[in-house]
Simulated scan of single mutants.
Amino acid sequence: MKKRGDYLFVDENNGVYTISLTPELQDDIGTVGYVEFKNEKAVSKGDALAKLEASKTVLDVPSPLAGKVVEKNTKLQDDPKLLNSPDDSQNWLVKLKDVDESAFNQLKGA
């Protein structure tokens, strides 16, 4: 099930929550040229997941949910333009576990 929060998509699949940019956010920030992930293993809602430098802005991406970071899309560090891809298998930032399901359910439907 896919939801929206803070201009991000959150896709839940078997207890893993994948966070990616919405097309609107991709358009607003422009072409991403640099991605720097934060080192936290756990995040609270609003904590920065990554810093993006794009053609239109520099942005700390806030987490729409609290949880444990279980995977980062490290391919973005070598090819940050993947964040501008329409392909969900390439344009994700991080994957979270141990997320409060009720907090996820409160996000807007995608």
Rank of each mutant, 00 (worst) to 15 (best):
A54W: 05
L82K: 12
Q77K: 14
L65H: 07
V43N: 04
K72I: 13
L65N: 04
T22L: 06
P86D: 06
K95A: 10
S89N: 13
L96D: 01
A54G: 07
L65V: 07
T57A: 14
T22D: 03
D78E: 15
V43S: 03
A54N: 04
V35G: 06
K81R: 14
N91Q: 03
V61C: 01
G33N: 12
E40N: 15
V70I: 15
K72G: 00
L49T: 06
P62W: 10
K97Q: 15
T31D: 15
L59K: 06
L82H: 09
T22C: 05
G67Y: 04
L59E: 01
P23R: 03
D88F: 11
D27V: 06
I29A: 07
T22Y: 07
T22P: 06
G67L: 10
Y34C: 00
D47L: 08
N84T: 05
D78Q: 14
S55Q: 12
D47W: 07
K51P: 00
K97V: 12
K81Q: 14
V69F: 01
L52D: 04
E71H: 01
E36R: 12
Q26Y: 01
N84L: 09
V61L: 05
L65S: 04
L25Q: 06
L21F: 10
L52S: 03
K81D: 14
P62A: 09
V35T: 06
T57I: 10
L25N: 01
V94M: 06
N84W: 03
D78G: 12
T31E: 15
K81G: 15
K41P: 03
L83H: 07
A54D: 07
E71Y: 00
L93Q: 03
S85D: 08
G33F: 05
P62L: 09
L82P: 10
G30F: 07
Q77W: 00
L76P: 08
L21T: 02
A48N: 11
P64A: 09
K56P: 02
G46I: 08
G46A: 07
L96N: 02
K56W: 04
G46V: 10
P23L: 02
Q90G: 00
D28N: 12
E71Q: 13
E40C: 01
E40T: 11
V58K: 09
D47Y: 09
L76S: 05
D79I: 13
L76D: 08
P62E: 09
S85A: 02
P86L: 02
E24R: 14
N39V: 10
E71R: 12
A42W: 08
V94L: 07
T31N: 14
E40L: 13
K75Y: 12
L83N: 02
P23C: 03
A42K: 15
K41D: 13
S55F: 09
D87T: 06
D78R: 13
E53T: 12
N91G: 01
Y34G: 00
V35N: 08
K97Y: 00
P62R: 02
D47F: 08
L96V: 05
P86R: 03
T74D: 13
D60K: 12
G33W: 01
Q90I: 00
N91I: 04
T57S: 14
L65C: 08
D28G: 00
T57C: 09
V94G: 05
Q26N: 05
K72W: 09
K95M: 10
E36I: 00
S55R: 10
D60S: 13
S89A: 13
S85K: 03
L76R: 00
L21S: 04
D88V: 13
Y34K: 13
E40F: 11
